[in-house]
Each structure stands twice: as structure tokens, then as C-alpha cells.
């Protein structure tokens, strides 16, 4: 048996394959296809204080090896989540993490406080990198001062493990990773989507109602991998890699580059079993290479550099 578990502080994950926020609903959408409890964790849909209707349709455009989305954090708000969704989430025997989003620091703080009282949620993922909302979201994550401010404010109230999700839409992501580490984040996840756009030449207008949107899928994998490699060398807290992972091979690249865990995002749209296939593939790879613990390959490529 290969050892696959990892920890964020004292929080134990049975394996390092997590489902990425906004691409896995609340888990139940996948019950027909996989045993969700086999995953190391699931990060549920981006949640806000108040209900949000999101952006107008069209919100999606397919691009070569990827897609643009401009969903804009459509969700029913934290109260609905606590009353109607949280009770069902407790049935999963895995770490369920809530991805929180605000338009101001007070929103983030209020959300973190609400989640403190949810016994079965061991961590929050602070999303300061959503490119699809006018207020808040990525505006926090692309400015060093506000990244520091929001992380500090949430850390001061948050009793759960705090993962900060970084935006790739910055010049030097290392600076941002260091800031959130200094402010007490327990882990960083990266990357959120890259800002991009697409034009519908048939109708001669932007493909998305918001003109620009967030690019995800294999198209962004080389960028995500490069950033994970840079950040993993720069910080001591565990780095969670996300961006374009569709196969075990692509996941393994992230571990070799320094990620302690990975998230599967858009891949679940095309194959709802992708996350478990990736988990199985990682195990097989370690086995075939003669490793008994995934920790032995984390950052492996740095040995010769």
C-alpha cells in the first residue's frame, strides 16, 4: 500500500486529490458516478453572504483545450447553505471545505465566523481570485496590500484551517504567496482561472455576456504548473495545485513540481469520474516507480536544479 495522506497543520487528508470549487457542486451531483467519500476532500461551490444570481447568459465559451466561464458566483448564500446543504454534506466521509467570497472584507469575516460554528467543516478556502465579479473577488487577490488585509482580517476570526486561493492574474505570484503565509494562512491553493476572452464571429459580438471570463482546463496547465513550482519553493505551508489537471500524469507533474495536493476542476465536467481515476493513477505511478509514500516525490524535480 502506497501512503497518500497529507496534512495541513493537524488537519489530516486521506489522500491528496480534492475536487475544485465551482466544478463539483455540493458533491451530491456526483453520487451517481463515484463514491465521493473516496476523495481526499471536496471544496464546495463558491459561497457568499447574500444569495447571488450570477451574470447573464451566455456564461461560457469553449476554447481550444479549455473553456471560459463567467458564472459570477451564482449561489443561494450562506444561510441557505447552512440550513439546506450542510446537513447533507455531513454524510460524506471526507473533508468538506467551503470556498468563501466577498465584495468587502466584512463579508469575508462574517462568512468565516458563520463557518466557525459548522463542526463538520474543517477548513475554508478564501477565494480572493474570482475574476467574474465586479466587486471584491479578484480585486483583493491582485493587490498585495488588500491581499494582506483580507487574509489578516479573516485569520483573526477563523478557527478553521485557512487556505487562500491565489489569482494567476498577477506579475509575481510569489509575493502574494509570501504575504498570505506571513498573515497566517495554513495553505495556499493555486491557480484560479486566467482572465481571457472569446469573440463569436458569426454574431459579431463577445461570446460571454461579461466580455471577459476565466479560462480553465488543460490550456492553463503549463501556467499553473509554473506558478505552483515557484510558490512551493518560496513558502513553507503546503501548496495545493490546481489548473488543467485531467489525468493522473498531469497531477503527478504538480507533485513533482512541489504541490502537496491537487484539485481537479473542469475535468469533472467532461468525465465525472476523473477525480477518482486520477487518484488511482497516482497510486499506480508511485507503485510502479517504487515509492511507498507520495511525500517522497513532492518537489522531486528540484533535486537536480
Amino acid at each position: 500500500m502506497v501512503k497518500l495522506d497529507f496534512k495541513i497543520g493537524n488537519l489530516h487528508f486521506k489522500n491528496p486529490v480534492l475536487a475544485a470549487s465551482g466544478t463539483f457542486g455540493y458533491g451530491s451531483e456526483f453520487d451517481d458516478f463515484i463514491d465521493v467519500s473516496r476523495l481526499g476532500g471536496i471544496i464546495v461551490k463558491g459561497t457568499t453572504l447574500e444569495p447571488r444570481e450570477g451574470n447573464p447568459y451566455p456564461r461560457m465559451a469553449e476554447t481550444p483545450s479549455g473553456m471560459l466561464n463567467a458564472v459570477g458566483l451564482q449561489n443561494k448564500g450562506i444561510d441557505y447553505f447552512v440550513d439546506n446543504i450542510y446537513p447533507h454534506l455531513q454524510e460524506y466521509n471526507t473533508n468538506v471545505i467551503v470556498n468563501i467570497n466577498g465584495s468587502c472584507i466584512d463579508d469575508y469575516v462574517a462568512l468565516a465566523e458563520r463557518i466557525n460554528s459548522l463542526r463538520r467543516i474543517p477548513a475554508i478556502e478564501l477565494n480572493i481570485s474570482c475574476p467574474n465579479v465586479k466587486m471584491g473577488g479578484m480585486t483583493f487577490g491582485i493587490n498585495p496590500a488588500s491581499t494582506r488585509e483580507v487574509t489578516k482580517a479573516v485569520r483573526s476570526v477563523c478557527k478553521k484551517k485557512l487556505i487562500v486561493k491565489l489569482s494567476p492574474n498577477v506579475t509575481n505570484i510569489i509575493d502574494f504567496a509570501r504575504i498570505v503565509e506571513e498573515e497566517g494562512a495554513d495553505s495556499v491553493s493555486l491557480i484560479n482561472t486566467l482572465v481571457g476572452m472569446s469573440v463569436d464571429i458569426k454574431n459579431m459580438r463577445p461570446s460571454l455576456s461579461t466580455v471577459t471570463g476565466g479560462l480553465s482546463g488543460p490550456a492553463i496547465k503549463p501556467v499553473a504548473l509554473r506558478m505552483v513550482w515557484q510558490v512551493a519553493k518560496a513558502v513553507k505551508i503546503p501548496v495545493i495545485g490546481v489548473g488543467g489537471i485531467t489525468t493522473a500524469d498531469s497531477a503527478i507533474e504538480f507533485f513533482l513540481a512541489g504541490a502537496s495536493a491537487i484539485q481537479v476542476g473542469t475535468a469533472s465536467f467532461i468525465d465525472p469520474q476523473a477525480s477518482l481515476k486520477i487518484l488511482e493513477g497516482i497510486e499506480n505511478y508511485l507503485d510502479s516507480k517504487g515509492f511507498s509514500d507520495i511525500k517522497d516525490i513532492i518537489g522531486y524535480i528540484n533535486r537536480d536544479l
Binding site: G22, G25, E29, G54, P58, M60, N69, S268, F269, P272
Partner: peptide, 10 residues
Amino acid sequence: GCGIGVCLCC
């Protein structure tokens, strides 16, 4: 995007 109610694009 997904057909199964997770991407909220439709």
C-alpha cells in the same frame, strides 16, 4: 458545460 448541474453555465 457539464450537463449535470455543476458548472451553472446553462
